[in-house]
């Protein structure tokens, strides 16, 4: 039986969760030769509204590409946390942006709190890279892909000229967990 790891990145539309999911999938599928899929669910709005991006990483074939029993749930908003925490496995991992998710539901799952949006704003100076900070937190907390694979995927996916900024945000995310 192959190992299947289910990830859901959740928050609001416009936070870059779809891009973050594609980068995670690319790090696993292209740079580490596993199988990975990324899918998304979002509303018709360009910004706002609930948004979720799902990544499945497996060493076997991935038929059904949607996540239903989550190994990892990232929540950048309280609303997303309330809505999705029930899909976490009993031993799953919940990662939250400590500024926006205050009320954490009870459960047996593990929790990693990180100042995701705060780091993006104060240490990088751009709130738009919160998705890359979150990616760093995820990689440090789960080791689902190597930091180097993630950085290569970031450099290939983000708009040209912003690679350095995005990698910096990613590394600050790594440190936020590893430094503790």
């Amino acid at each position: 039986m192959s190992q299947r790891y289910e990830i859901r990145l959740s928050g609001a539309g416009g936070q870059g969760l779809i891009l973050a999911g594609k980068i995670l999938a690319e790090a696993a599928a292209i740079y580490e030769n596993k199988n990975a899929t990324q899918s998304q669910s979002y509303g018709p709005e360009a910004r706002g509204g609930a948004s979720r991006s799902e990544v499945i990483i497996s060493d076997g074939d991935i038929d059904f590409p949607k996540a239903s029993a989550l190994d990892l749930l990232l929540c950048l908003t309280q609303e997303a946390c309330d809505k999705y925490v029930g899909d976490l496995k009993a031993d799953g991992l919940l990662i939250i942006d400590s500024r926006f998710v205050k009320d954490i539901p009870e459960g047996t799952f593990r929790i990693t709190r990180a100042d995701i949006s705060k780091i993006a704003e104060e240490k990088v100076g751009r709130s738009v890279v919160a998705n890359m900070v979150a990616l760093g937190v995820i990689v440090a907390a789960t080791r689902i892909v190597l930091p180097d694979s993630a950085e290569r995927a970031i450099s290939g996916r983000v708009p040209r000229g912003t690679e350095e900024l995005n990698v910096k945000a990613f590394r600050l995310g790594l440190q936020a967990v590893n430094g503790k």
């Binding site: 999938a25 599928a29 199988n35 990324q38 899918s39 590409p65």
Partner: peptide
């Protein structure tokens, strides 16, 4: 939409 938007290798 599942096939059109799904990212895979």
């Amino acid at each position: 939409e599942i096939v059109g938007h799904l990212t895979e290798k």
